[in-house]
Design a protein around this nucleic acid. Structure first.
Lengths: 96, 96
DNA sequence: TACACTTATTCATATATTTCGATACAAAGT
DNA sequence: ACTTTGTATCGAAATATATGAATAAGTGTA
């Protein structure tokens, strides 16, 4: 963790997750679930363009993988362990 | 994780950590270490004002606690488990 | 009180992010 | 080819964030 480059990579990945909607997306995709853009934007009640934008940020920063199946594009967690970050933050919120 | 308010709190906390220098600070404070502003800004080779600014962000978002001892102000992790986030992100970077 | 040391805040500027509407692109069916 | 459905990108405006220089404020000591 001494090198600046590693710190920057780590912060890029964390920054990608550090947004209310993107946390919700990562949370929805825990346990290996696959969801399409439409499923996500409807579940979160956000514009399709906004969902697509958030998904592309998560994909570009290495948080999500995507796979096209016919008309739909399905997104999954690239590193299943990333769910732990959400769990960890959640625990910290609920402490006294 | 359904409520927007919880998502926003979680993202505020994550956003606080999601910066190269602030990741380095959290990393330096793992294992219950206590460090002063001067120790941190010298170790990271950043301006004192910048270190103070980052520390106040981390403190205000509930990541760090601080304690004044004489002339110095010592900062510690408020939730020791937050080190796991750094470890988790680091593991994800090192995967193929 | 005066001084040195440590930490916090303010200000200005530069840069980045979020959002929405509009539009473009892609795949499948008619 | 045309239409429908699903997804991605662009442009613009609003908001947020990062940085350095300067300064203020708190603390201990002579």
């Amino acid at each position: 963790m001494i090198e600046l480059k590693k710190l920057e990579n780590a912060s890029e990945m964390l920054k990608a997750i550090a947004h209310p909607m993107r946390i919700a997306i990562v949370d929805m995709l825990s346990d290996g679930k696959k969801l399409s853009v439409t499923e996500i934007h409807e579940a979160l009640k956000i514009e399709q363009a906004v969902a697509s934008h958030h998904l592309s940020i998560l994909k570009n920063k290495g948080v999500l993988s995507h796979e096209r199946m016919g008309k739909n594009c399905y997104y999954t967690l690239k590193h299943p362990r990333l769910s732990q970050i959400i769990i960890c933050i959640d625990k910290c919120q609920n402490e006294i």
